[in-house]
Computed example of a mutant assay.
Amino acid sequence: MTHNTQPVVIIGGGQSGLAAARAVRNAGLRPLVLEAGDRPVGSWPRYYDSLTLFSPSQYSSMPGAPFGGNPDHYPTRDEVVAYLQGYADDLGVEIRTGTRATAVEAYGAGFVVHTDAGDSIPTGGVVAATGSFTNPYVPVLPGRDGFTGQTLHVADYRNPAPYVGQRVVIVGAGNSAVQVGYELGQVARVTLATRAPLLFLPQRQEGKDLHYWLETLGFDELPSAWLARLITGVPVLDDGVYSKAEAAGVFDRREMFTAFDGDKLVWADVEREQVDVVLFATGYRPSLEYLSGLGALDSDGMPLHMGGISLTHPGLVYVGLEFQRSFSSNTLRGAHRDADYVVGPLAAHVAGAASVLGA
């Protein structure tokens, strides 16, 4: 089989993988999407029950598929799942669900992708679009292994029912930490442990959602290097509910604790407090373990890339990395821009490899 008949393998069937499939298809190549889950909707069904997008429908769409409904509506988790399923159905590309990529090996000018079903798929190009949800980040803190309470990451949180009446500390200062803290604060005593005060950013300014201004002013597409200079702290989008809730004591905020001690936390002021649950809303790292034997990752498992294009293997590209090229890189509204960007060099590599082989 030559490179012009082989598919381009896209690993991951969430929003980034679907955006990549569209770009690969539009480049005249044949995409094959491998999705470990039972539906091509990525990690969305596994997020907490009450999750809503922080951007309204009109700023949460992928190319050629408006979200539908009220453009100012903030879609729920389940609405996003239904939207992605519909998008996948309309793409007209091959998607294999229930298929997990286990390894990628270099083979000539291309690759072979191995799956948990025992398949070995030759390809001229690979798009790594697996996101990060399956690789939650939890910081190393003294005494955690001996903590007798419960610890979990927000990836494993679903709803407040198991935590009624408990003492809960949430580690994190971002949108998820505040959204979950607000929800838990209705049934439990909740503190957000952070290294800096919460930074609330008004959801609407001059009658327009913040995303209107991000798009109008071009902030959505600013290069990541510029963002590092402009953004200080972790902004939390707020329509007024969360800041009022903090002021009313629905949840409070304390300086990050320094250690675990049995069933207690040691706060920065050395006070020890018994705690039932510590929930980490501390983000994620890219889920790229299938590339570990390829030599495409650094010692921390992070991809060696520039703008989503591998620095180690021509024909390997990424879509869906946080701040890959811009503020919106790993979002519904922004993944397609990165997909279009990386598929250009990928298509050139596939064509060049086919030419060398006389295809």
Rank of each mutant, 00 (worst) to 15 (best):
L141R: 15
P136N: 09
F133I: 03
A129Q: 02
I95C: 12
R100G: 05
Y182R: 08
A117H: 13
P139E: 09
H114Y: 14
L184C: 05
Y163S: 07
V104P: 04
I95F: 08
Y163R: 00
G131F: 08
A109C: 10
G124F: 10
G125P: 02
A117I: 08
V164A: 14
G108C: 07
V164Q: 13
Y157N: 09
A177N: 04
P160Q: 08
A129G: 07
F111S: 12
A161Q: 14
S176I: 03
T134D: 13
L141S: 06
Y163V: 09
F133E: 03
T123G: 10
V168H: 03
G146P: 01
R158N: 12
R144T: 12
P162C: 03
H114S: 15
V178M: 03
F147Q: 09
T102M: 12
G185W: 03
A103S: 15
V168Q: 02
Q179R: 04
A101W: 02
V104A: 07
I95M: 12
V138R: 14
A155R: 13
A101T: 07
A177P: 06
V138F: 07
H114K: 13
G185P: 01
T130Y: 08
V138I: 15
T134S: 14
V178E: 08
P136V: 11
G181L: 06
V126T: 08
R167N: 14
V178C: 02
D119Q: 14
G146Q: 10
A188R: 00
Y137E: 11
A188M: 04
G108A: 08
G172V: 02
Q179I: 00
T99C: 05
N135M: 08
V126R: 04
S120M: 08
T97E: 07
G185Y: 01
V112T: 15
P160M: 09
Q166G: 01
V138G: 02
P122L: 06
D145G: 15
D116T: 05
A173E: 13
V104K: 01
D119P: 07
R96L: 14
V113N: 06
Q186E: 15
F133V: 07
V138L: 13
A117R: 15
T148I: 10
T148W: 04
R167A: 12
F111L: 11
D116L: 07
G174F: 07
D145R: 15
V127W: 03
A129H: 10
H153V: 07
S176F: 04
P142I: 02
G124T: 06
A109E: 14
A161L: 11
G149E: 08
L141F: 02
Q150H: 13
G118R: 12
D119Y: 02
A177W: 01
V154T: 14
G98S: 13
G98N: 15
A177V: 01
G124N: 05
E183T: 15
G131Q: 03
R144C: 09
R158A: 13
L141W: 01
V171D: 09
Q166F: 01
Q150R: 14
T148K: 13
D116A: 12
T115F: 09
R167W: 05
V178T: 10
F111M: 11
G172M: 01
Y157M: 10
T148M: 08
G146K: 00
T134Y: 10
V187L: 06
L141K: 12
T115Q: 04
G131M: 06
E105T: 15
D156V: 05
Q179C: 00
Q179L: 05
F111W: 02
A129K: 09
Q179K: 05
G125T: 06
A101I: 01
